[in-house]
Design a binder for these strands. Structure first.
Lengths: 165, 165
DNA sequence: ACATTTAGGACCAAATTAGTACTATTATAA
DNA sequence: TTATAATAGTACTAATTTGGTCCTAAATGT
């Protein structure tokens, strides 16, 4: 599947959320978890990964937290994805020439895999984190609502068990 | 992981292989399997899928086989991927608004998911099947060779068990 | 009829991913 | 100097997804 891993997906949500507060502002994993509605361990894991990848700056200890290292306009979606998953490589052949190729020498595609990789990488490099927080002209996607009563608290649809607590 | 499924990867190889013979030429699954070095059931599955998706034309019965429905220049990599995996959707939110979203209404990304999807889809639509068979200027990727002797028969590296037979 | 080929779906094993938990480290403040 | 609150890193397990194969049915040509 050409699809973002769920955690990568979350990472983008989290980064976007962070981008929404004033530049340089620090926030804890716990607070973020509350804001985006994901479980703390999950959010923590993602923040750790992004920090290790150099996208965030972390401060430990009491009063610690995370903040974006650069301005949202200077961070690309590609970077976030790579921060989570390592170098962007849509195919084995594109990622690791030494593992490739099980398909003997007659592989008619050969290095052309790089082209696929390149266009996608390029496209994602154009998309800034800032552009992900832009308000939409169109009404945004609809949030599922279990059909239950209560306009009060939007039911969390169960994708896994990321109930924040 | 933002990565093509193995079968999709194979599909591109197969399509590229088909593109290498004269336009309109028909070839059986068995013959293709031999050419690309994959197991027949696997190749069959892929061809069936692509045919159902409308990219290939199939002819049943003795003397049957598959052929590309359009010229390689008129088939995009995006189409092949979609033929295998259905509509291109990097995130759940982008694919199915009704399933989305477990992250209640405060999701700071909202419909901006579409942007990610859009740029990637666009990029892949630019890439034609024809461009995937272009010879390379640079020496192509290196094919793994188990270090064993024999310049004769390139050892099939085991990724799964797609030994053609 | 029979051999050959695709169509479609079912199934199982293997690989991957998500989520959680645990321990260590760092920082602050009482 | 102790307590507390925060991140760092890793390991583990359950759930999900994927790959690969097989089986039966339908079509087509000899």
């Amino acid at each position: 599947m050409i699809r973002l891993a769920k955690l990568t997906d979350y990472a983008i949500v989290i980064a976007t959320q962070m981008a929404a507060s004033p530049p340089g502002q620090q926030i804890t994993a716990r607070a973020l978890a509350g804001q985006v509605g994901l479980a703390l361990p999950t959010v923590s894991k993602i923040l750790k990964t992004l920090a290790r990848g150099g996208l965030l700056e972390a401060q430990r200890g009491k009063g610690g937290g995370y903040r974006l290292k650069r301005l949202p306009a200077d961070i690309s979606v590609a970077e976030i994805i790579e921060g989570m998953e390592g170098p962007l490589a849509l195919t084995d052949c594109a990622s690791d020439e030494s593992t490739c190729c099980s398909i003997r020498e007659t592989c008619s595609v050969k290095g052309n895999w790089q082209k696929i990789n390149h266009v996608v990488h390029d496209a994602l490099r154009q998309l800034s984190l800032e552009s992900m927080m832009q308000p939409l002209r169109e009404p945004p996607h609809i949030h599922k609502n279990t059909g239950a009563k209560s306009g009060e608290e939007d039911t969390l649809v169960t994708i896994g068990r990321q109930i924040h607590g």
